[in-house]
Design a protein around this nucleic acid. Structure first.
Length: 444
RNA sequence: GUGGCCGUAGCUCAGCUGGUAGAGCUCCAGAUUGUGGUUCUGGCUGUCGCGGGUUCGAAUCCCGUCGGUCACCCCA
């Protein structure tokens, strides 16, 4: 008990590790389908990288300390600043658009609760060097397809999309001016999904808005359709421009046939200060869990961090909420562990050297092979073999061995067959349908 | 940082209004010394989270503390 793991940190026993690896596999496969390249960065960064660039929200929850060289450093709470730094360090030399992904473990020092630990793995996909909404739509499509790859459908999740520029323009159009008030509105509006309108209004007034302004701001969130907005605010060029951009954005998703997964929702704001345009979050439809993922456009961040002017956007999807959702919807694949191909059953200890030689030979050919380390009753060996869900057992018995034969048993069908030792590799190829060549194993 | 609930075997938990601990599962062994997921039998594991208090006596009541959990704050 004294050496228990730290609060908010997880141990991954084989079962959990297998689930995590499954999630990673789907993530990587999705990134590959969308032609994103993998990159990685250090888990520790100078605290300043986050202090100055990400907004105050994140800084209070950093896992930070001084290292032995007196540097003020932090475990990364997110990947985006690292990515911005990496890309900026190459100047403008990388071919655009840059489409990169990573699966970093990120850390936040805060009290844990459901769906939120002090550490999690986060699938990050970012597009840099492209300012058009085609990139935003592509990224949202990637999110949708990723979740679909886990078996989640239209009944399970929705990506809600908003636009900070549109929201700013609207707020200005209803007469609220100034960055400070804008911030108040953003912060209050973020609560709309969780708190009653009166409470949000109270917050707005508390933040310095007049009652009438607060009402007008809140009324903005009644409308669900972009066309309603254009109808009412056609005198504001800023509003109309952004509505048109959003219409192009949704048009692209329509063309991909994904309209059923996305919806316009002005109340999506996102906490991080660096977002500058379209922002989005994915939620489970039942509303039981917190956001599955979130992201958006951050056109200024690369410049702020690395001095290189480059439009950019990205999202992060954590493994914790996703795993909860998969459990809830019973969407885990049945077999997650690496299957064992063969268990070698030793009938007589005198044949152990021959068994070891055979095990080594089969492993050399790429098969997963296991056997008992010490003397064990034959019945027990079979028990172990089936416990490990081996596909087949090979029985080395003195009688067959004298004739150069072994017994091969398909543990699923219980069929048994005698094979010659020399042909064993070829026989496995035919008898084990899932048999992989050594080379293909390495490529996976 | 604040609050609610919880803390008994590796796991899930029982233990009534105080009389110094139990079940199921898992694990190990055997029935079954050349054939497995069933069944049966036997076995191991606990300073009852920790510290203090009340009491003749505390797993049980009280206080504190640590841990877990959920929510708030905030948000990847």
């Amino acid at each position: 008990m004294d050496l228990a793991s730290l609060p908010g940190f997880r141990d991954f026993f084989p079962e959990e590790a297998a689930r995590r690896d499954y999630i990673f596999r789907v993530w990587r496969e999705t990134a590959r389908r969308y032609a994103f390249s993998a990159y990685d960065g250090p888990p520790l960064e100078l605290t300043d990288l986050y202090r100055r660039k990400s907004g105050d929200e994140i800084v209070g929850q950093l896992y930070c300390f001084e290292d032995k060289g007196g540097r003020d450093i932090a475990l990364r709470p997110e990947m985006t600043p690292t990515l911005a730094r990496m890309v900026a360090s190459k100047g403008q030399s990388l071919p655009k658009p840059i489409k990169w992904f990573s699966i970093p473990q990120v850390f936040r020092y805060e009290r844990q609760q459901r769906g939120r630990l002090r550490e999690h793995f986060q699938f990050n996909c970012d597009i840099l060097g492209e300012e058009g909404v085609a990139a935003d739509a592509e990224l949202v499509a990637l999110v949708v397809d990723c979740l679909r790859a886990f078996g989640l459908g239209e009944a399970d999740f929705r990506v809600r999309v908003s636009d900070r520029q549109l929201l700013s323009a609207l707020i200005t159009a209803v007469g609220v001016e100034g960055d400070a008030l804008l911030k108040v509105v953003f912060a209050s509006v973020d609560k709309l999904s969780r708190e009653p309108p009166e409470k949000v209004k109270a917050k707005l007034v508390e933040g310095g808005l007049q009652e009438a302004q607060a009402d007008r701001v809140l009324s903005l969130f009644q409308r669900k359709k972009l066309s309603d907005i254009t109808a009412e605010f056609d005198s504001s060029k800023a509003v109309c421009d952004r509505v048109m951009a959003l219409q192009r954005f949704f048009g692209i998703l329509d063309a991909k046939g994904l309209q059923g997964y996305v919806e316009f929702d002005l109340s999506i704001v996102r906490g991080l200060a660096y977002y500058t345009g379209i922002v989005f979050e994915a939620f489970d439809c039942k509303g039981e869990l917190r956001a599955i993922c979130g992201g958006g456009r951050y056109d200024q961040l690369v410049k702020t961090i690395g001095g290189v002017d480059m439009p950019a956007l990205g999202f992060g999807m954590g493994d914790v909420v996703l795993a909860e959702l998969l459990t809830e919807r019973k969407l885990w694949p049945e077999k997650l562990a690496q299957p064992l191909d063969v268990f070698l059953v030793l009938v007589d200890e005198k044949l152990r050297p021959q068994m070891l030689s055979l095990a080594h030979q089969l492993r050399g050919e790429g098969l997963g092979v296991d056997y008992a380390f010490g003397e064990m009753a034959v019945g027990k060996q079979f028990k172990v073999a089936s416990q490990k869900e081996a596909r087949a057992a090979v029985i080395l018995g003195p009688e067959e061995w004298k004739r150069g034969m072994i017994k091969f048993k398909n543990l699923a069908t219980r069929d048994e067959k005698e094979l010659s030792v020399s042909d064993i590799g070829i026989e496995f190829k035919m008898l084990l349908p899932g048999w992989r060549t050594y080379a293909s194993t390495l490529k996976q």
